[in-house]
Amino acid sequence: MTSGVGSVAGLAFDLALGGLLLATALAAVAGRNLFGGVVAFVVYGLLASLAWVRLGAIDVALAEAAIGAGLTGVLLVGAVARLARIGAVEPAPTAPVGKALAALGAVGVAGAIALAVLALPEGRPGLGPEVARNLEASGVENPVTAVLIVFRGYDTLIESIVLLAALVGVWAASLERDWGGLPGLRQHARPGGVMATFARLVPSIGIVVGIYVVHAGAYAPGGAFQGGTILAAVYLLAAMAGLVEPPAVSRLPVRLALALGPAVFLGLGVVGALGGTFLAFPEAVAGTLVLVVETALTVSIAATLALLVLGPPARPSPGGAP
């Protein structure tokens, strides 16, 4: 194929994808039916991860598909079902004046951002060259992982704790009597049914893929967040099929698993601070330390994500609270 044909095809593809993104987003935001809106959002997320591939950001594509579309979708579908079961009364629609004002504001913000992007100077200085220059010192080959864990590891440390802050808030949305109990509703699936069969088949593959994605993060797209999400998804699948019973949130091993990653990251950071530089990875052992941090983070991220989706404790623990 000649370059000309390729770029025309590429342009057509990008225009089509952009149009689909806007259409699914519109359906998700403005559609009449809530469940349909959530489904449109999941489709939107998958299309968005395609856009990330086109933008050359495979790491983001993985994260968008796994977290943005996948886990968020599961969370929202579950919430729609829960509200339907309760029979909760829907809010009254916004008055036309309010809608018009909101539309005006939204168009204003979108227009301002579009103008600002178009006004960007040519040949802008990105940090790509800077990252490439320091990649050696980071101990990893994937520049995105280097930024996430080494150059801007401080962001990632706080981010891993953001997940825990959300989890504490989610747990606190339980009833007093269920505190420390089992999260989520009891799941039923017939042992011989398709769901159970699927859920028995997938984990072996899923766990391998999850660990591979974490490990690959050092030199190729992947890392703790993407891999941890896959592991969490595998666990959620097994839990939804009724193959595993989620543990009581008061159990010590659960809580240790949640805290492990941030604790290791924070501990290494403080050791660095005592040596003169907060969150420093000495170049000689940087690769090993990144691996240690990524492994510990994966455990915590997988546990936290799974528990975030399962929701607040809703059933008393069979053995009683400790």
């Binding site: 398709v194 769901m195 069969t197 699927f198 088949l201 997938v202 593959i205």
Partner: peptide
């Protein structure tokens, strides 16, 4: 293969 498995299961459900 995985996509077929998932699609088949989802379709059943």
């Amino acid at each position: 293969v995985l996509a077929m498995l998932a699609a088949g299961t989802a379709a059943q459900l």
